[in-house]
């Protein structure tokens, strides 16, 4: 509060403080220039000066640590913004950087688990989930709770609920007929188990029962619109059924969940090529190549898209690059060579 009632020295003819006859004009209060200056510099109490110095020292320590926290905070927020834009591959890099500095940061951990899942890296999602398992999620943190729900849903839909059956199925892997019979009867008895339905769809696909695989996956996707393995399985079935337009639409749906999904971009490219949308296919796979420039599968599809867009030089340059890799996959290189030399048609 500031006030100027009951002020001292109010009835002097000269400077109210030192009685000098000269005083500064224009003020209600008569003071000479020197006295006014001196009074305006009213001393600050020593205790307050010392307290300020103390706070200043603490502040300096805090400011010294600030750049690390600030950088990590900005990175974490950038990751969250990218999540809102469904750009999970870029977001994943920021969350990893945050966790490198703050390994116990629950928000970054949960975001990274979700991003790993949406980047189709289930192995990473599972190992992170094992790490996060023992941590308590604050019940009043709605954002973390929503992510926990998403992650739990994903787990429940990714693993067959009946663990005994899952073990039996693992033992029956070599005996396709027995495996199919067991899984089929379980799905009838437990239609809510989406992981079992997806596993059954895989079996149908292996047995070239594409219609069955397609319809089963369509049911799963209807019930769990973010269950990505079911999408990929259905996309395989649609490709084998030559239902390319449906496949294109489904691949676009999958991509809308994560606009930076390399696998979804490659799948979309393959449907675009099959529908002779060659220019769009090249644009799509270039997006993937910008995100994962050294990924062999992406380079494979890029070479293919270049070939269909009459960019033979680039196509052959990519083939050479793939051949020269120490871990070159000779089978896929031979296949790519057949495609880009028109010995075999991809479409």
């Amino acid at each position: 509060m500031e006030e100027y009632d009951d002020l001292p020295y109010q009835h002097s003819t000269g400077c109210s403080r030192c009685n000098t006859p000269e005083y500064e004009p224009g003020y209600a209060f008569r003071l000479c220039k020197a006295c006014r200056k001196k009074l305006s510099r009213y001393p600050v109490k020593k205790e307050i000066v010392w307290a300020t110095i103390g706070v200043g020292v603490i502040l300096l320590v805090a400011i010294f640590r600030l750049p690390g926290y600030f950088q990590a905070g900005v990175g974490y927020m950038k990751g969250k913004k990218l999540v809102e834009e469904h750009k999970y591959l870029s977001a994943e890099k920021y969350f990893k950087a945050t966790l490198k500095k703050f390994p116990d940061h629950l928000g970054a951990m949960m975001h990274l688990i979700k991003a790993s899942y949406l980047n189709d890296n289930e192995a990473q999602a599972d190992s992170l989930l094992a790490l996060a398992g023992g941590k308590d999620i604050p019940t009043d943190d709605e954002e973390l709770q929503a992510m926990l729900e998403f992650i739990n849903d994903h787990i429940s839909h990714s693993r067959i609920e009946d663990t005994a059956l899952a073990r039996t199925l693992a033992d029956l892997e070599e005996d396709t007929a027995a495996y199919l019979a067991k899984l089929d009867s379980y799905v009838v008895a437990a239609p809510y188990d989406l992981a079992a339905k997806t596993a059954l769809a895989y079996t149908y696909e292996d047995l070239q029962l594409y219609e069955k695989a397609d319809s089963l996956c369509a049911q799963v996707i209807h019930n769990a619109p973010l269950l990505r393995p079911a999408y990929y399985e259905r996309l395989s079935a649609l490709r084998d059924l030559k239902k390319y337009k449906e496949g294109l639409k489904l691949a676009e749906d999958l991509l809308s969940q994560n606009t930076e999904s390399i696998q979804a971009l490659m799948t979309l490219t393959s449907f675009q090529l099959r529908l002779n949308m060659d220019k769009q296919a090249l644009l799509t796979i270039r997006q993937a190549a910008a995100l994962a420039p050294e990924d062999s599968s992406v380079l494979f599809m890029l070479a293919l898209a270049c070939h269909y867009n009459r960019q033979q030089d680039e196509s052959h340059r990519i083939l050479t690059k793939l051949k020269n890799r120490p871990d070159a996959d000779t089978g896929s290189i031979a296949l790519l060579h057949s495609y880009i030399t028109d010995k075999v048609s991809y479409k």
Binding site: M1, E2, E3, Y4, D6, L7, G26, Y27, A28, F29, L31, R36, L39
Partner: peptide, 12 residues
């Protein structure tokens, strides 16, 4: 009340 104050001259 008041818990703190500054008494100053009226401003020009």
């Amino acid at each position: 009340n008041p818990v703190g104050y500054v008494k100053h001259e009226p401003v020009r």
